[in-house]
């Protein structure tokens, strides 16, 4: 093959690549994103927080909020989630939410787990207090947000999903809406499943919105997620919930598509 022909083929590949790249949707405007750092006395850690305001944010209105755990993770980053909320709000003709992304770079295993094991530090109670008494009040003082639990959504993946399940059982007054993505319900011999049984009677009347999503190829997660969905169906008649198993996806690769699916469910039903 001559050199000129090889160059022509290479140029074609570059053109095709640039064409598809140019078709990319617009990202969130950086001016919509506010970043700050907050220290928690409850956990002893510092957290970076990103607040993504709706495009048409108006301080004369109050907004609902979506709290996103692991917000720095590339597969579930705060600006990508904010992009989905923007699209879904337009699709369902409903007011967009303020996305509050919380970083978890340092103490994730401690903050999201309910007990102290080799795999986690059992600091979820401290982290819950951080949310309830430190972060949420700060967001409510700095931005025009609805202060009721009904207006709050929590999005967690993996151990973050486990933490969301913990909030559902033990702190259901904080959030009304839950996106539990690939929750690690296997943790500590299924401790959260045991908690759910123990506290079921007092939680039976709650009427939260719950979306549980997982990937087909993360079987250890599917086991717990299916069980969680079964319990919601059987023991929580007032909850509206949905279970979604994404085909041909594993743990990380299912996170973002399931977040999209969950946010669509949230906007459809809020």
């Amino acid at each position: 093959m001559t050199t000129i022909r090889k160059l022509l083929i290479f140029a074609c590949f570059i053109e095709v690549f640039l064409f598809f790249n140019s078709c990319k949707k617009d990202d969130i405007n950086p001016e919509q994103i506010k970043q700050f750092s907050i220290h928690s006395d409850n956990t002893g850690s510092d957290y970076t927080v990103w607040v993504v305001l709706p495009k048409d944010y108006n301080p004369d209105f109050t907004y609902e909020t979506a709290y996103l755990l692991d917000a720095q993770a590339n597969y579930l980053r705060y600006d990508k989630i904010a992009k989905i909320t923007e699209e879904q709000s337009l699709k369902y003709n409903k007011q967009n939410v303020i996305v509050v992304g919380i970083s978890s770079e340092n103490d994730r295993d401690r903050d999201f787990t309910p007990s102290n094991t080799e795999l986690g530090g059992g600091g979820s109670e401290g982290y819950s207090k951080f949310l309830e008494f430190e972060l949420i009040p700060k967001i409510e003082s700095d931005y025009r947000v609805d202060t009721t639990a009904k207006s709050r959504l929590i999005i967690g993946h993996s151990l973050g999903g486990l933490f969301a399940c913990n909030l559902f059982i033990n702190h259901s007054h904080l959030f009304h809406n839950y996106l539990m993505l690939s929750p690690s319900l296997w943790y500590d011999n299924g401790l959260l499943l045991q908690y759910e049984s123990d506290f079921r009677a007092q939680n039976a009347t709650i009427n939260n919105l719950v979306f549980v999503g997982c990937g087909e190829l993360e079987e250890s997660i599917v086991l717990g997620a299916q069980e969680w969905d079964y319990r919601l169906s059987t023991f929580y008649p007032n909850c509206i919930h949905s279970f979604y198993k994404l085909l041909n996806r594993s743990h990380v690769e299912s996170a973002f598509p399931n977040a999209e699916q969950g946010l669509a469910y949230y906007y459809e039903n809020k």
Binding site: G190, Q194, E219, V222, Y230, R231
Partner: peptide, 14 residues
């Protein structure tokens, strides 16, 4: 996949 603590699960096998 089978959970060893099958008493916690309605369906302990996937």
């Amino acid at each position: 996949y089978t959970a060893r603590n099958s008493d916690l699960y309605n369906k302990p096998t996937v």
